[in-house]
Computed example of a mutant assay.
Amino acid sequence: MEGFQLQFIISVFIILLGYLFKRIKILKESDGQTIARIVFNITLPALVIVTFDQMVISLSLVSLIFIAFLFGLASALIGILAFRSEKDGIKGMAAMMVPGVNVGLFAFPLVEAIWGREGIQHFGMFDVGNAVIVFGVCFFIAGYFAKGTSSFYLREAFSPLLRSIPFLTYMFVVALNLSGFHLPGLFLDTAEIISVANMPLSLLLLGLYLNFSFEKSWLPLIGKYLAIKYGTGLFLGFSLFWILSDYPMLANTVLIGFILPASTTSVVYAIRYQYNTKIVGTIVNITIIVSFVLIWLLASFVAYH
């Protein structure tokens, strides 16, 4: 059995374990909020610090920031155009979920298992550009179509970005790397021990948030959203995959990065702007399942090409 296939089986088992713990009431879905804060504010930053400390920043790595940002902008435009005929409550809700993907919580544990530290470095740089989309562009779309004016949101669009500990950690360690400074060995050793918890906690959290119940009346909207999100991601992903074939890890990052699930911050924006949080939460859950299957298929494809 291929190594990455074994890692996928282990990942599925941990996710199902989280779902089982929820079903038998060892853990509650509300416990996920605490676990999510631990992941985003402690274990994920620790993983970024350890991974980026010794990283050699190359042009291909830096290009991932711009690739992720441009992909997010293109997806945002496609989402707005695709849902332009919907009511504002649906248009803003669906359009804000097309750009922006879940890298830190979803991709990192799988990428670390398949490609190790090199994979984390590439997806980390991808996430820098993606973070601007998630905390800036998605936030703006959600607010603009909820209120119908952009004057307020242009001032606030990027404020969540400056409060994101993972994003600030990216900026901090990249700045240290470029300046030639390195963190003390004791600090890095401590961060490495903490970072080991990132993969299992992230996968358990995905299991806690899995929910398979939804109203049948939502199916047309969900189907349209999935077709737009994954149609765009697969088309652009495969296009760049062949163009960047001389840079295998760069090509892999783009291919996988473009079909990651919708960002969980969509639920936060839905609450803030009074969209239907049940539909948003359901769509996020479905994209987790769809993306997991697609990543397994694409990782198998990449392994033989």
Rank of each mutant, 00 (worst) to 15 (best):
Q7K: 13
S11R: 09
L20E: 10
I26W: 13
G32E: 12
R37P: 09
V50P: 14
F52T: 08
L64C: 08
F66T: 02
F66Y: 14
I67E: 04
A76M: 12
A76P: 12
I80W: 00
A82N: 10
P99I: 15
V103T: 15
V103Y: 14
L105A: 03
L110Y: 10
E112T: 04
I120E: 07
G129A: 03
N130S: 09
A131D: 08
A142N: 01
G143N: 02
Y153L: 14
A157N: 02
S159D: 09
L162D: 13
F172W: 05
A175Y: 01
L176Q: 05
S179H: 01
F187T: 04
A197E: 04
L210R: 06
F212K: 01
S213W: 04
E215K: 05
P220V: 03
A227I: 10
A227F: 15
G231C: 01
G233C: 00
F238Y: 03
F241A: 02
W242D: 03
L244T: 05
D246Q: 09
N252F: 09
L255K: 04
G257Q: 03
T264D: 08
T265Y: 15
I271C: 13
I271G: 15
R272N: 03
Y275S: 01
T277Q: 14
I279M: 08
N285T: 05
I289Q: 08
W296H: 12
